[in-house]
Each structure stands twice: as C-alpha cells, then as structure tokens.
Design a protein around this nucleic acid. Sequence first.
RNA 1: GGCCCUGUCGUCUAGUGGCCUAGGACGGUGCCCUCUCACGGCAUAAACCCGGGUUCGAAUCCCGGCAGGGUCACCA
Length: 481
Amino acid sequence: MKPRLRFAPSPTGYLHIGGARTALFNWLFARRHGGTFVLRIEDTDQERSTPQSLQAILDGLTWLGIDWDEGPGKDGRHGPYFQMKKLDRYGQLAQQLIDAGWAYRDYSTEDELSAARKAFAAEKGLKEGDDLRSAGFKFTSPWRDKNQTLEKPALIRFKMPRREGRFGFDDLVLGRIEKPYDDFDDFVLLRSDGVPLYNFGCVVDDHDMAITHVGRGQEHINSTFPQLMIYEAFGWEPPRFAHIPLILGQDKEKLSKRRHPEADVMKHKENGILPHALLNFIARLGWSHGNDETFTREQLIEKFDFEHVGKANGVWNPGKLVALNQHWIKNTEPLEVAMQLLPYLQATGVPEAAVDAKLELGVRAFAERSTTLVEMAEKLKPYYVKGVTIDGAAAAKHLTPEGKALLQKAREELAKLTDWTTAALDPIVKTVADANGAKVGAVAQPIRVAATGNTVSPGIGVTLELLGRDETFHRLDAALR
RNA sequence: GGCCCUGUCGUCUAGUGGCCUAGGACGGUGCCCUCUCACGGCAUAAACCCGGGUUCGAAUCCCGGCAGGGUCACCA
C-alpha cells in the first residue's frame, strides 16, 4: 500500500520554519515511497484564520519546492481539504458518537464553569493569579450521564471511559509512549456553534483522507492520546505517528515569531538564501544520514526516513545555514544561480540587468565570494553602472606615481588586445610586471583600484571582462588623469 | 504541580555492548596556496550531564538524581 501523508497547517500566520520542516519530512517520506502528499487547511479557528495567511503558507511551500498532490488548487477524491467546508460531516460523526455512548451534549455555560473554578480555588485557598491546572483542577460536566437533548446550544464532549491502566502507541521516532487513562478529562469534540476542535477535526480528516503516517511536532504528543480514543470509539485504524523534535532559537527558547525573525521562511528568501540551501539545512536539523552534510533534492528523497530523526530539540545555527548557502551557490549551475539572483540584482538599482552571458560570468566570478544572493547582488552591481568612486585609502596606497606609471603601461598593453576575454586579459598583469621589473602585485593592485575603486575583486582577467572594454578604459583613464 | 519526552565538542550530529585513543560538519586557531579578496588544502583545540548498578567489557542496557523541553482551552 502506498503511504499517504499530509501537512495540516492552520492559516493563522506566515509559514513557520518548524512547520516547513514538518512539511518537508512528510513530503520526503511520501515522495520516497511513491506515496501521496496532501495539504489540508485546518481553518476552524475563525478568530485567527485569514486568507493572507493561507496565501503566505502556499507561497512558502511553493518557494521551497514542496508540492502537494491533493489540497488547495489540487482537488482529489478525499476532499474537501478545508475543514470549514465539511462541518456537516463532523456534525454527523459527532452524533454517531453520541448514539454509541461515546459522547454527550454538554449544556454547561461559561458561567457554570467559572463558578466551578472559583469554588475549587476557594477550597484550595488559591489566589487570583494561581494556575488552577497546577493545583489539579478538573471539571466533570453534570451532563455527562444525562443523555439529554435540549432546545438550546450545546457543545459535544467525548466521554472518556473510566478505565484503569495505561494506553499508548509506538512512535516512529520516539518508540513506545504511554499514559494513564485517568490523565484525561472529557474533552470537547464540537463547539456549541458546530465547529470541531483540533483533535476531532484532525482524526476525522486523517481518516477521511486515508492518511497512513502522521509526522508532526513533539508538541502534539499529548494530543495523540485523546485522538487515539476517538479512533477507538469509531473503530478506525489509527495512522503511524512520528513526533519530530522542536527547533529552538539560539537562546534555546522555542522558535517564536516575536523574538526570532528566522522563524519566518520567507525572511530567508529576503536574506538571499537559496531555497534548496534552506531545505538542506532544515533537513539536517533533526535528521541525519551518517556523516553526510549536503544533499541534493533527489538524495534527500532517496535517503530520508523517520528512524534517523533525532529525539532531542535542535538549536538554530545561522552560521551553518549561510555556509550551506554558499556551498549551494558554488555547486549549482551558474545559469540556475543567475536566474535566482536576477531579482536581487535588479533590486539594487540596475533594472536593466538580465540573465545573459555577462550575468553568468558574474555568477562564476562571485560564487566563491558570496555567502548569500543579496551579497552577490551588491558585489555585482558596480559592474552594471557607469564609472566608479575610488576609495581614498585604496588610492593613497596603490595609485601612487609608481602605481600610475605601471597602470599606464598596463593600459597600453590592454589597448593592443583584440580579444577581450579572461583568458586573454589575465596574462597582461605578468607581462607588464616582467617588462618593468615589478612584482605582479604591484601591477595588479593599481589596475584593480582604478577599475573597481577598491583593493578587493576577483582576478584581474574576469574583473575586466565583466566590466567590458569601454568601461574599463573609461575607468582606467579617469584614474590616470 | 501531574503526566510525557529528551540529555555526545559552542552548535548540528555519527554512534543501536567490544571497530571509540569517541568520527564528520559549521564556527575558532595555525600553516600552505596566491595579483587582492575569496575558494581550496593541511593541521589543531574542543564533548559522552552526575551517581549507582548489569556485564569480562558501556557513550550505548537498567535505576536514581539533575537539567532542558512539551502538554494539561468551546487554540492548533
């Protein structure tokens, strides 16, 4: 049987890096085994769900190259893929549970609940701000065994069986996990407005969508237990679960929107990170394959498994992400990098830039010198504008009378060239140095400063080819004046 | 607080009882290469949370501490 996996975000914000990794692991597993990857939208929190968030999540996944076989924009046989579109289904199933004695209508009001809380607090002698849960507050609805249907709104609670002992499941990454039955209260299945809560909607949908494996964050371990009870009540076979460790910020706190800008997937796009580099990085954060560090998309699909997902939380390491980014900048076809780079370059103020031979040459020259696409764009920009401002210190050091004399000689040699290529340009430096009894550096640096305004650039040959013949002479002559 | 999960260099990790004198990667340090900057190459410092067991033998198994995390809603 081909596996079916899903990613089920709630559209209440941008695509979080932890969510992206969860999506990636599920996607990799589905792809590896020729299965199906489903994208389901859990939009039952109407307070917080927004269309913008949905779009942001879709955009984030698309940017990362994580595609889905069923879900928004991809209808399948197991839809609808938005929970708010199947309220009737949840209602019918909840009624089924009531009929079977696994659930009941609860007409308790908020007032009654808070009265119970107050009574509990008074009995225990707790103060206003104290956490009732810590003190062991439990609420048992008086409607639990009444089995009544009244003409007023009710929420539907699951009736946890009063059992001794423990129950649990075999987690794909954590192994056996168990809890005592009496750890759980009757939990809410359906709100009084008929909208399902997470546990109920999740189980119904995973069943309806024939999900076989659920990879999700470890914060969901505890909700697995009530979900298991729902499966039992319906007599459904639960999927296999794989609880993935959390990603922590450098302060070792859970990655949060507020304190950790890196939690937003699209922030990395903005920072000039290649989508595949980010993919490689988050894959390695929590999963490993021996001593391997870099993986192509195909290798990731070929090697991924839940058994090698680690059990401990991981700390975000921006330095390693950047190192991986540089690795992929260097190890991706220059044409491909050029296409990714273009928008960043244009954004620096050179809208006329295009994916052409010049840009590809630029990528080849700067791949080893750039850690991000933003950095590469900034470094390439001077090759797209007319003229250059020469750095004072650089001029003072290299455009001395002696420097200028050598620069003049070099200019004369360059003028003789018919072929303006790196291969033809490179030897000029040594030729001029030899002819004048100077060191190569004494020739190269004045040229570099005159041509780029600075002491740092790729080799003289590529630098001048990138600049082009006309612009090179324009800048050299300006420096010689 | 109850319950649950976790604990190898600063960080990500390899490791599933002898192959471990604990390996790799990022970062650090030093050297080499070199027209600058990078890239690359070589070398180096750096870890099994603590304490008990089990075993001929434990980073690996068990127990207890300690530390970190998760969860306990008409959020997901």
